[in-house]
């Protein structure tokens, strides 16, 4: 029961923090924002790492490696494309 409360608490806390932070972001950057949060959602890669930290059966290994490839694709692709996009946003007369 304490576990349930703790985990729900973590979820709600992060949701609220995220909500306040993100509602202040200008619409100018909504596409890079979505593409970055998309990369963040590949945090499941941590879960897959933990999965591989103990010995596993052949089936688990196959399932795990598919999950790992997909998460890595999402993670790397998401951050790289966001970086490319953000480099496009320029201001006149200065590299700022």
């Amino acid at each position: 029961m304490t576990n349930l409360l703790l985990m729900t608490g973590v979820f709600l806390f992060s949701f609220v923090v995220g909500y306040f932070l993100i509602s202040r972001i200008p619409t100018l950057l909504h596409t890079p924002l979505m593409s970055m949060t998309n990369a963040i959602s590949a945090v499941t890669i941590l879960g897959v790492l933990i999965l591989f930290s103990v010995s596993s059966t052949r089936t688990e290994q196959i399932i795990g490696s598919v999950a790992f490839i997909m998460a890595a694709f999402n993670l790397v692709g998401g951050f790289v494309i966001t970086d490319r996009m953000l480099k496009l946003f320029k201001k006149k007369g200065g590299c700022k």
Partner: peptide
């Protein structure tokens, strides 16, 4: 897996979406 970082990252993405 009771990993708090995963939960909070997920929640943050959910908020953004």
């Amino acid at each position: 897996i009771e990993n708090k970082l995963l939960i909070s990252c997920g929640a943050m993405v959910a908020a953004s979406g």
